[in-house]
């Protein structure tokens, strides 16, 4: 089974964030970059499935030239090759644009003889959280789509059995390929790169495309940070001596079992 995994370069945010001069994006100078937890799981699922079925994994990203770093990281854990769709200002792309650009590249690869049985994405990007690109891409390709999927396995023929947590238990789907699946963290543990993986990543084959100008564009007007509410924390004390004060608070809230 040949699998395409779409990933996104995002700033690795740990502490306080600040906005850039335009007020429409965060200032990522000095921040490291990563991909989302959902996408790491999508890459892992792809590697496992390709290994079990004798297929290949290709990773794709739409982003600045530096996003090749995230493609190489995915090759380092076991993907076979990568596709970079270079866009200097990927923030100018709306979800419709991103889906269409990725769809066009998939069609171009198909014409070139590279067919993907399955296209995986993360459930949502950790930065923009739009929850739309997988579904818009599926419509663009004319494929069926599932979201919030935590694991899947080949079910004979061009079909996979996919599982995701629903409101009343684990929901099981039978999905005919080719298809789009949006992966939710939790079903698999992403692996770490091995030494040989790191070597392979350096020499990874990365096909390059240049993204066209965005059509629909991004509906974003600006970004705002939450108001810096001066929080008054009450320090109950230091070390075990403060236990009594904490139990007083818990008793007042009324959560200690009698």
């Amino acid at each position: 089974m040949d699998i395409l995994v779409c990933i996104k370069r995002i700033p690795d945010i740990a502490g306080q964030i600040t906005l850039d001069g335009s007020g429409t994006d965060i200032d990522d100078a000095g921040l490291g970059h990563t991909t989302s937890a959902h996408e790491e799981c999508a890459v892992e699922l792809a590697i496992q499935t390709a290994a079990a079925t004798g297929g290949k994994v290709t990773v794709l990203t739409l982003g600045p030239a530096e996003a090749v770093e995230q493609l190489r990281a995915a090759v380092g854990v076991g993907a076979n090759d990568g596709i970079l769709i270079e866009a200097e200002d990927s923030g100018a792309f709306g979800t419709e644009d991103i889906a269409q650009v990725i769809g066009d590249v998939i069609r171009d690869r198909t014409e070139g003889g590279q067919n993907f049985d399955l296209v995986l994405l993360g459930n949502d990007a950790a930065d923009t959280g739009d929850f739309q690109v997988p579904i818009r891409l599926a419509y663009d390709l004319g494929y069926p789509v599932l979201t919030s999927i935590s694991t899947f396995s080949p079910a004979g023929g061009p079909v996979i059995e996919a599982r995701g947590i629903g409101p009343s238990g684990t929901e099981i789907f039978s999905l005919e390929l080719p298809a789009v699946v949006a992966v939710q963290e939790g079903g698999v543990d992403p692996r770490y790169p091995s030494i040989t993986g790191r070597m392979k990543a350096k020499k990874a084959r990365i096909a390059e495309y240049v993204a066209p100008e965005p059509g629909a564009g991004n509906p974003r007007i600006g970004l705002e940070l939450p108001p810096d509410t001066a929080n008054e924390v009450t320090i109950l004390g230091e070390g075990p001596d403060a236990a009594g004060a904490l139990v007083d608070v818990l008793e007042e809230i009324g959560v200690i079992r009698s």
């Binding site: 964030i17 950790a126 923009t128 007007i221 600006g222 705002e224």
Partner: peptide, 18 residues
Amino acid sequence: EGLLRQVLGGAAFERLQL
């Protein structure tokens, strides 16, 4: 002025017009 929505896991808000 439009909608305000959570981005970056709630660390920031995006103002937008659909």
